[in-house]
Design a protein around this nucleic acid. Structure first.
Lengths: 158, 158
DNA sequence: TATTGTTATACTCTATAACTATA
DNA sequence: TATAGTTATAGAGTATAACAATA
């Protein structure tokens, strides 16, 4: 029985997460922490509000996350030059270097995955992936929910 | 600047998670809980050891998970007929019905995603996805780690 | 008034370690 | 001894709510 496209995509998701978890095992890094560092690497020094919206998380959670990243030496809180309420979260030099390395690893992995696809299929493959990504984006943005949940047992309080 | 295959796949992963999170918001379900129910739906009544290995989680975590699923009315713990140490975690009728519905939703979503891919590209697309999945599986199973982590700042204690 | 970030508190998911009952 | 599951404890990540400082 052939797996559906959705099953294949879910398989890829699981493997990508597993790869990260394994890489971070035994370190003080995690998916969430690296996500924050990744945003800072690309956006440069940012306020906690910006981080909150990029990571789709509440400001309170960002406070805790930045606390731990700061304690571990990945980031520093600097005064915002124009707004004395705000803070600019900034990568330390060591963390900036590390993120540059991670970005190179990321590109290497991307190249390896593309190379695994038979050359003749590559164009159709990326085109298809693009189509799936847009379709999924529309579905998620749309207001319909795609799973049948039994409301009689799935009440918040139970 | 064209996104890489890896970026597209990460985008798909994020959207799939977002879709589930949204569907489960305001209910007592979560990705982890539904994963357990999904395993039980397909494997039938299972010991907690089996669940632990399917979810790749410690037995202790399964105890807590089954406790909460039981309290909410999704599963029951039954005596194992042959091994008095063990327990068979079993879906309640209501939960079994819900999972049947979810499986139908899952198929519907799979079909929708495939339909989004131009017909002429479908064969090459699934072939490519298959290739990426195997390649990624090999990479993850291999012992090499794919990210440059700065050991001087990423020590467990920091 | 509205926004930025913090303190206080709580829930879920996960882990390790020590223990009981049974195989 | 080894295995199935539980109790106890801890840490990360997330949320809501109330508050202080600043815009």
């Amino acid at each position: 029985m052939k797996p559906t496209v959705l099953d294949q995509l879910l398989g890829v998701s699981a493997l990508l997460r597993e790869d990260m978890e394994r890489a971070f095992a035994g370190t003080n890094l995690s998916e969430t922490r690296v996500h924050a560092l990744w945003v800072l690497h690309h956006a440069g020094p940012s306020t906690q509000q910006v981080l909150a919206s990029e990571l789709a998380v509440t400001p309170r959670s960002i406070s805790a996350l930045v606390d731990s990243l700061e304690a571990a030496g990945y980031v520093e809180r600097r005064d915002h030059p124009a707004d004395r309420r705000a803070v600019l979260v900034t990568l330390t030099d060591a963390a900036a270097g590390m993120m540059t390395g991670m970005e190179a690893d990321h590109s290497r992995l991307a190249a390896r995955l593309l190379e695994a696809v038979p050359e003749a299929d590559r164009e159709a493959f990326t085109r298809g992936l693009d189509a799936v990504l847009s379709q999924l984006g529309e579905l998620v943005r749309g207001e319909a929910v795609h799973y049948s949940i039994d409301a009689s047992i799935a009440e918040p309080g139970r």
